[in-house]
């Protein structure tokens, strides 16, 4: 790596002339300049708006039955068509967005707190590290979706249980990422200096280590949001999510599956909404990684 710079000899002097430490504004500007980040942000804003303004977008209730309006294909009156009970698919999809985002947010918050805490403690107190990481490894040995299925199946179907199942699966993954960046930060000179100056553990963790491990955590959380939304839909498609008739994207697709010959829009639209949401989050994650995580910045 060092030599690829030397290879260009004269040219990279300019790149090196850019300011070394990035300010918050600088990060925001670089994010804004990142094309796919901007695109992801736009898509995600649309999804959030759809969820936030659900009652305005669709004045019809998501569970309102209309037996005379069954299986209507998408049209001007029913933008996303209707299902076997004549329920408005537009209403069900935008209300489904609410639940998806809610579950995603809850999982992200829980991970941010517990994942960061476990990771920071394991990375900082080496005595804890071995034990915590062994358990982490074991949980991560299970394929993520399968473990979530197992936990959700055992706990029974409900939204809080779904959040719990997803958190159990993803916290070790978050913890591991925080831990490795804590280990790196811990060895930095200014942290060593703070230790030498007699600062307490808690102070060092809070003042020096956590703020400097934020970048990888942020990147992880945005990808985690994407996984959580995707896994939630998968589980509720398998009948492990909120009880019907609650409109979750997975539920809608599970119910629509038996009519996919006659009314493919029932599954096509929530799936597309799901794919767009996941893609938006992945694009945001890519942007954050390129801008925030200096180890990977070179790759763009």
């Amino acid at each position: 790596m060092a030599d690829s710079v030397a290879m260009l000899d004269g040219a990279p002097q300019i790149a090196a002339a850019a300011p070394g430490r990035s300010t918050r504004w600088d990060v925001a500007r670089r994010l804004w300049r990142h094309r796919s980040f901007r695109f992801g942000l736009g898509l995600f804003a649309i999804v959030i708006a759809a969820a936030a303004f659900a009652p305005w977008i669709s004045p019809i209730e998501p569970n309102k039955l209309a037996m005379r309006a069954r299986f209507l294909p998408p049209s001007w009156d029913h933008l996303f068509g209707t299902d076997n009970f004549g329920r408005s698919q537009l209403a069900r999809v935008v209300y489904g967005a609410q639940l998806s985002l809610m579950i995603g947010t809850a999982v992200v918050v829980i991970n941010a707190v517990f994942g960061a805490l476990i990771g920071a403690l394991a990375g900082y107190f080496r005595q804890l590290d071995n034990m915590v990481m062994r358990v982490n490894d074991a949980v991560m040995a299970f394929p993520a979706v399968l473990l979530a299925i197992g936990v959700a199946a055992v706990l029974g179907r409900s939204t809080p249980n779904m959040i719990l199942a997803l958190s159990v699966v993803y916290i070790p993954r978050t913890a591991r990422i925080v831990r490795s960046s804590v280990i790196v930060v811990r060895q930095m000179e200014y942290v060593q200096a703070a230790v030498a100056a007699g600062a307490g553990h808690w102070r060092i963790l809070r003042r020096h280590i956590l703020p400097n491990s934020m970048a990888p955590l942020m990147v992880q959380l945005s990808f985690l949001f994407a996984y959580a939304v995707l896994t939630e839909a998968t589980l509720s498609f398998l009948g492990l999510g909120a009880e019907p008739p609650t409109p979750t994207w997975g539920n809608i697709m599970a119910e629509g599956r038996q009519y996919m010959r006659e009314a493919p829009w029932i599954i096509a639209i929530p799936g597309a909404a799901l794919a767009i949401t996941v893609m938006a989050l992945n694009l945001l994650g890519d942007g954050l990684r390129d801008v925030l995580d200096p180890r990977l910045r070179v790759q763009q």
Binding site: S36, F237, M253, I267, G271, A275, M279
Partner: peptide
């Protein structure tokens, strides 16, 4: 690749069946 990592596989399967 981005579309690939964002698409739910069961949905893709259903769409392919259709």
């Amino acid at each position: 690749a981005m579309i690939g990592v964002s698409m739910p596989n069961f949905w893709l399967g259903l769409m392919m069946i259709v």
